[in-house]
């Protein structure tokens, strides 16, 4: 019980420090902006650790963060193998193929009013398909290995990127297009110099949504058949073998990967669409 009290005390102290920092005159300093969320996360982990130890929670229900961390450190080889299988082979290749194909198709169908209008409802329909429904089918089509996972990811990311890109390509104003007409610019020149740059904020919106979808798709697809490696495989078998610490270690990898990839895409977005009002500092 005293362990939990200690954790509670740590949490309250962290809260007090954060509140003081947020009110202080350094609140906009870059250091403080990193320290506050880190301290917040540490306080939650501390409370979790204290609660698990203080109340003697069974590790099968909820393992302490320290034992998850110990398991993580002891299984880096296994975790890396799963990461390679699920993230680099399944999710990344599916993401690249799906987003690339969606972008190309958006540019190609953009000249047809019929196709752009018709695709939005179809896109919404496909986006509403439950992944647990299509994953088994794609696994039976493309086999157990990462190719079927990439296929699930392609299906999941294709329409959000397509719909956003089509919307973005319609973003250039009538006046900006008239300007290109007064220069007697070709279709390709107008596309490259006006419509694609103007579409970029929308394209990145789609790409950011797609990062999360890709990771979910690649992991969940492994529940429906996979070689004996991969994050989804490890999570589903780990739960069965009551190896909950390993499951949490995989979840930690997934969370870190998801945040890192989202951050990376946001960084590229900042670099490409620096001119957009939402990105100007």
């Amino acid at each position: 019980m005293s362990v939990f009290g200690l954790a509670l005390l740590f949490w309250l102290a962290a809260w007090a420090v954060n509140a003081a920092l947020a009110r202080s005159r350094w609140r906009d300093a870059s250091g403080v902006r990193v320290v506050v969320p880190v301290l917040f996360g540490a306080a939650i982990l501390g409370l979790w650790e204290g609660a698990v130890r203080g109340f003697g929670v069974s590790p099968v229900i909820l393992p302490a963060p320290s034992s998850v961390a110990a398991r993580f450190a002891g299984e880096t080889g296994l975790l890396w193998e799963d990461f390679l299988q699920t993230v680099l082979k399944g999710a990344l290749s599916g993401y690249a193929i799906g987003c690339g194909a969606a972008f190309l198709v958006a540019v190609l169908i953009d000249r047809s009013r019929f196709l752009t209008r018709g695709l939005l409802p179809v896109g919404n329909f496909v986006a509403a398909l439950p992944i647990v429904g299509i994953a088994p089918i794609l696994v039976s089509w493309f086999g157990f290995d990462w190719q079927s996972k990439a296929a699930v990811v392609v299906v999941m990311v294709f329409f959000p990127v397509l719909v956003n890109t089509v919307q973005g390509l319609a973003e250039a104003s009538a006046m900006q297009k008239d300007l290109m007409r007064t220069y007697a610019a070709s279709y390709l020149q107008t596309l490259l110099k006006l419509r694609l740059p103007a579409a970029m904020p929308f394209v990145f919106n789609g790409l950011k949504i797609a990062t999360t979808l890709a990771l979910i798709g690649a992991i969940v697809a492994e529940y429906f058949g996979s070689p004996t490696r991969g994050m989804g495989f490890r999570i589903s078998t780990g739960v069965g073998r009551l190896d909950i610490e390993l499951v949490w270690a995989e979840i930690a990898v997934a969370a870190l990967t998801g945040s890192a990839v989202f951050g990376l895409v946001s960084l590229v977005e900042r670099w490409v669409t620096f001119w957009h009002p939402s990105q100007r500092s």
Partner: peptide, 13 residues
């Protein structure tokens, strides 16, 4: 001809 519109319409990028 060169055309000047009501708004400057410069490309922000």
């Amino acid at each position: 001809y060169g055309y000047v519109f009501q708004a400057a319409g410069l490309y922000p990028w």
